[in-house]
Design a protein around this nucleic acid. Sequence first.
DNA 1: ACAGATATCCCGGAAATCAGCCATTTTTAA
DNA 2: TTAAAAATGGCTGATTTCCGGGATATCTGT
Lengths: 207, 207
Amino acid sequence: MIKVLLIDDHPIVMEGLKNLLSRQEDVTVAGCFDTGKAGLQAIEELAPDVVLLDINLPDINGIDLCQQVRKNDKDVRIIALSVHNERPVIKNVLNSGANGYVLKNAVGDEIIMAINAALKGEIYLCRASRNIVSQVQEGELTEIPKITRREKEILSLVSKGLTTTQIAEQLFISSHTVESHRKNLMDKFDVNTMTAVIKFATQFGLI
Amino acid sequence: MIKVLLIDDHPIVMEGLKNLLSRQEDVTVAGCFDTGKAGLQAIEELAPDVVLLDINLPDINGIDLCQQVRKNDKDVRIIALSVHNERPVIKNVLNSGANGYVLKNAVGDEIIMAINAALKGEIYLCRASRNIVSQVQEGELTEIPKITRREKEILSLVSKGLTTTQIAEQLFISSHTVESHRKNLMDKFDVNTMTAVIKFATQFGLI
DNA sequence: ACAGATATCCCGGAAATCAGCCATTTTTAA
DNA sequence: TTAAAAATGGCTGATTTCCGGGATATCTGT
């Protein structure tokens, strides 16, 4: 029997998943959790074979969660569930240790296939995500830039409409410093205006 | 029997909804559709009592869909399902003719309650959304600004990092015109930088 | 203890944005 | 068919951002 753990904060999705898995002879649902914290603990205690993990949880970022699981040397297979079909997001999730990536609007079959593939040691992507990953668009980010705490802070204030001077005043630092952070952000996102940075950052849920 | 129509592009959510409704004695599922187009047609043909409508469909915007249904003088009750818990989104949906607003991470009970309330002619919001709507934050948008086609076009180009001059060249119009559009956008979003506009617009799915 | 990452600070000039005005033409909806 | 909305174009000046170089401190993980 394949022991599967479900982590998702949408009760309705959870219902659907349970329903789907109950139709599989060789699968048993080991537990259901709606927060990353509870899920992380459950992985330790229940030692499931596979985890179906919603990437957008209210408490913990899905990517961080994957990394934390992997840090404990767990060889549990993680199938990421997500609504995002953008290459940087997919790449980031896979790099963080997920064994599969399935969109929430994928058909149930794809989840079953992802589980089986993961158990075989393969990495499964749902059809739509495979397309996205394979077609490299020009001038597109390949990964979500790693931004620092301070940069995130500046990003947030910029997105609220504050100017460099206002941000400097609010954070009690020089405006030159703020400008440096802006520059670094534009470098990391590989664009040359802050508006473009804000769009990506908002899209990827960084702010 | 209450005839309910389901419109959602997530098969798993659909499963969950069917499951949930099948446990209700007095409810029958009249049909399931995964696009706005198909759903709209089905509302005409099947004349359900209630529609559970996912606001974020791939083909048609949920708000437009509500308006189209209402334009045909249908008195079908629409319960909007959404992942967005921001006041402007909620207001917009309700103003477009929805009879209820339930977040996808709400428990199943809330959907049942929304259906019953809608049939009584009441408007039901799930608990979390009620909280958001009631607590008016200072300096917050109350509704999603209505932007024109041209403004949307400029918005998109700005978000890609183009400058006013570049946009003017691309659209074969004067840079002064582009500036006018920028100003109007900032006015409509009630902010004074384009970065703030971009954040809201991205958040609300306008670009 | 030490390296690498992060945060801090600085300059100058070119380019772009923002703010506050207004006017005309073309669509669109009532 | 008329009134309202949208798109177009314009001006000036103040402010801000962007780009190109830097440099030094502080924190953090191994």
